[in-house]
Design a protein around this nucleic acid. Sequence first.
DNA 1: GTGCAATATTTGTTATGTTAAATATATGAG
DNA 2: CTCATATATTTAACATAACAAATATTGCAC
Lengths: 150, 150
Amino acid sequence: MTDDTEIAGSPVLPSTRRSIPIALIRAREKVMGPIREMLSDCGITEQQWRILRVLEEFGPQDASTLAERACLLLPSQTRIVQTLLEKGFVTRQVDEKDRRKQTVAITPAGQAIIDDKLQDAKAIAARIEEVIGKEKLAQLLDILEDFQKL
Amino acid sequence: MTDDTEIAGSPVLPSTRRSIPIALIRAREKVMGPIREMLSDCGITEQQWRILRVLEEFGPQDASTLAERACLLLPSQTRIVQTLLEKGFVTRQVDEKDRRKQTVAITPAGQAIIDDKLQDAKAIAARIEEVIGKEKLAQLLDILEDFQKL
DNA sequence: GTGCAATATTTGTTATGTTAAATATATGAG
DNA sequence: CTCATATATTTAACATAACAAATATTGCAC
């Protein structure tokens, strides 16, 4: 590999082949392939799935917290929750203590979606662990966590 | 960390805090922050920047190759190249040998964008290396590459 | 050389990302 | 109490992502 070289007087950017942003996209694309396939069956998108997963894991919560945990911007969260409302997979109601806040919760129908896909999701996770290796996956998660310090 | 546990008879998904797809998004979001800031100055989006970078690195190339290298789906590539055409940063012409193909090339004006941002981009890359560490970055890129085997 | 399958690219549609502006409620100064 | 400011969320507008379908060209069988 002669990437990321710097010829005297002629500085260049790292090759796109060793670019962190591009490498992150490529990996993500590969990971999401089977997940999207799994979800397309039940008419759920990747982001809708993330919302449901977070609601299941942490319980009812306000919109900002939900967006943070699902790694979505608030405007995206708003729209996605609206479509999930229409599908009957979540509920949303104003917080009585602070009426600026909205509390979102998963419904039994939403929970059923997760339960239905549980085995598939676990199989995909197992496949990734098989190919990458448990140790490397742990390393990867640790390094990715470091990026939050940026 | 008690994530990714499996209570007998009650299988659960990994916590969203240790989810590979979510970790990849979070890291990418952090990395892209300063890059977007850099690009917003000159009215260029992240994807438009990727197209220009790839064209600079590999020279004129057909649409499919460009999309592959810039990590874009073909439809996205088409639209982004259209806006870059309007801005005068790239050219696009049919391949005379195979008239189904389009050859895209960067213009001097497009090259000027890259040259203008070169120092900023290098500074951002240096900052990342400083925070994460050279070794971990190399490890990260290697592990991310493994995902292509999925 | 006609028709058909394969290839290369674009277009259409729906959902999301991103930024800025709008709305609604809360909180504190005076 | 009232107003200015801060906070929580939504709406608006535009670009992109993803997938399916349409278009255009090529290459080959016949």
